[in-house]
Amino acid sequence: MGTPETSREPCPDRILDDIGGAFGMGAVGGSAFHFLKGLYNAPRGARVVAASQAVRLNAPRVGGSFAVWGGLFSSFDCTMVYLRQKEDPWNSIFAGAATGGFLSMRQGLPAAARSAAFGGVLLALIEGAGIMLNKFLSAQQPMPMIVDEPLPPNGLPGQPVASAPDAASQSSWLGGWFGDGKKDEAAAEATGGSETKVLESFDAPPVPNFEYK
């Protein structure tokens, strides 16, 4: 489809974005590293000239290496997204292992297996650190959790009330649907009451309308 909604899928275009981003990181980081290395190794009086020469010699090479790694990683990541049809940290871990193994393939299978294991462990540590950081940041806001705790008991009495008329009336379809609506309305009101206090990254479930299609 040509609609802008379907073009929001990032995967084929993200590979090019990641190649450019990785080259930028490698070139800038390599420039800084080799500038300092040139300053350290050069004799006194010729430090700046030697450092700039080292940067001009080595920075493009480091940028190229980073671009190759980033492009391969992004390609494998998109492949995993397509195969698994979901996005979670396992995609990055498999992509890291595949990239390490692929880049060491010409050195023989034992070296490739070792590099793949190293890449997988490295990406697992990175993803683990990211999840830990996310938990730490979310744990720094205990107030909404404390405020949210009294509200669920308001929702719980709604459940027996919803189930009682269901059993009493015994109507087959409309009564059951109406009972579900009551429970969901109670739950929506409970969560709606705390809507202003919930984190911005979390949306309360909407009130369902009953347009059966």
Binding site: P10, D77, Q85, E149, P152, L156, L199
Partner: peptide
């Protein structure tokens, strides 16, 4: 083929992170 992801973004980390809330009732 239905794909699931966490957030509407082009960033890989943002797409892999699922907004969630954990609470305990009475």
């Amino acid at each position: 083929p239905i794909t699931g992801y966490g957030q509407e973004s082009r960033n890989r980390a943002a797409r892999q992170r699922i907004p969630h809330r954990v609470w305990t009732d009475e």
